[in-house]
Amino acid sequence: MTTLLLIEQVLNGLQFGVMLFLMAAGLTLIFGVMGLINLAHGSLYMVGAFAAAAVAGWTGSFFLALVGSMVAAAMAGALVELTVIRRLYARDHLDQVLATFALILIFSEATRWIFGSFPLFLNVPEMLKGTITLPGGIQYSLYRLTIIGIGLAVAVGLFLLISKTRIGMRIRAGENDREMIAALGVDISVLYTVVFALGAALAGLSGALVGAIQSVEVGMGEPVLILAFVVIVIGGIGSIKGALAGAILVGLTDTLGRTLLPVVFGSFMEVSAATTIGSALASMLIYILMAGVLLFKPTGLFGKT
């Protein structure tokens, strides 16, 4: 494998990690502040992707498609929180899992009813098509590089929101002692709705960005949701910094594993067998990484002890 190809795969892993961060950031906020296991978070990712495809089809604007994805996912998230999730905060985690799993089925069937069973496609805007030359003569997709930039910008924005603003102060306080901030006059119900809508909007944005790389179809959010849970376990529940670190680790591990392991096995066996075995082992690497992190730091890299 050449050095240029390795650098390209590192960038691909970073892009994948940034996409996972957008999913995991909302998930870790919801779980950290509300203590809620939300299996339907992947459905909000799907809602964002379908909303983006629909808005892009109506307007021809990719920027409006991104805005539409966030608005649609945030509205769907707020509606779900007000009608269903709000009744689950005092229930145990099993009830939360069952209820949010039912939401997955509802979202999937509603999306299939509205958009049909066939995949939709979201085109990369003309200004972001093609490649850009990076230092060292590396040719890399301009759109994927834009995803990396957007993800990092969102990470900085979330950090500033949580650490420097009044709403961020309330979110941090709600994570540590929700009864106390309720006693101080903060409307905890409104805070929960805002946090849930924010997490949903980030998931919707992630779905819209990925929708221009792969097809937009029913059920596309569930595989990403599993990886997002791995990310927050590795990074530490409730930590935005941990979500970013965990997402990048998972993205790089998965991408480089799928690239390098077939090459390693290909040095002493047939190419077809090496590809099969390498791909199988690569899919296990992120779970091995998670187990290794939890072995030495059970709360995750940036989780609270």
Rank of each mutant, 00 (worst) to 15 (best):
M1H: 15
L5P: 04
I7P: 11
I7E: 11
I7T: 14
Q9E: 13
Q9K: 13
G13V: 01
G13F: 03
F16Q: 06
G17F: 12
V18C: 05
M23R: 05
A24N: 01
A25M: 06
G26L: 00
L27T: 07
T28A: 08
I30Y: 10
F31D: 06
F31W: 15
G35C: 10
N38Y: 10
L39Y: 10
A40N: 10
S43N: 12
M46T: 13
V47I: 14
G48M: 07
F50C: 00
A52V: 01
A53F: 06
W58L: 14
T59R: 06
F62S: 00
F62L: 00
F63K: 07
F63L: 14
L64H: 01
L64C: 02
L66T: 06
L66D: 03
G68S: 11
A73E: 07
A73Q: 04
A76K: 01
L79V: 11
V80Y: 08
L82D: 09
L82M: 14
R86N: 04
R86S: 14
Y89V: 01
A90I: 09
R91K: 05
D92S: 08
F101S: 11
A102H: 00
A102G: 12
I104A: 04
I104H: 00
L105K: 03
S108T: 14
E109H: 15
F115S: 14
F115K: 12
G116V: 06
S117H: 07
F118Y: 15
F121D: 03
P125E: 02
E126V: 07
M127Y: 11
L128D: 07
K129E: 09
K129I: 03
T131H: 13
T133N: 08
L134H: 10
G136T: 04
Q139S: 12
S141W: 06
T146Q: 05
I148S: 03
G151T: 12
L152E: 02
A155Q: 03
L160K: 09
L161A: 01
S163C: 01
T165E: 00
I171W: 05
G174T: 07
N176Y: 08
D177H: 09
D177C: 09
A182K: 15
G185M: 01
I188V: 15
V195R: 02
A200L: 07
A201P: 06
A201G: 06
L205S: 12
A208P: 02
A208W: 00
V210N: 10
A212Y: 01
Q214E: 12
V216Q: 02
V216G: 03
V216K: 08
G219H: 05
G219R: 02
E222K: 11
V224E: 09
L225I: 04
L227N: 09
I232M: 07
L244S: 11
A245P: 07
V250M: 12
V250H: 12
T253V: 08
T255R: 07
T259L: 11
L260A: 08
V263A: 15
F265Q: 10
G266K: 11
M269A: 06
S272N: 13
T275S: 14
T276K: 13
T276A: 15
T276L: 14
I286A: 00
I288V: 11
L295D: 00
P298A: 14
P298W: 07
F302H: 02
G303H: 08
G303C: 11
K304V: 10
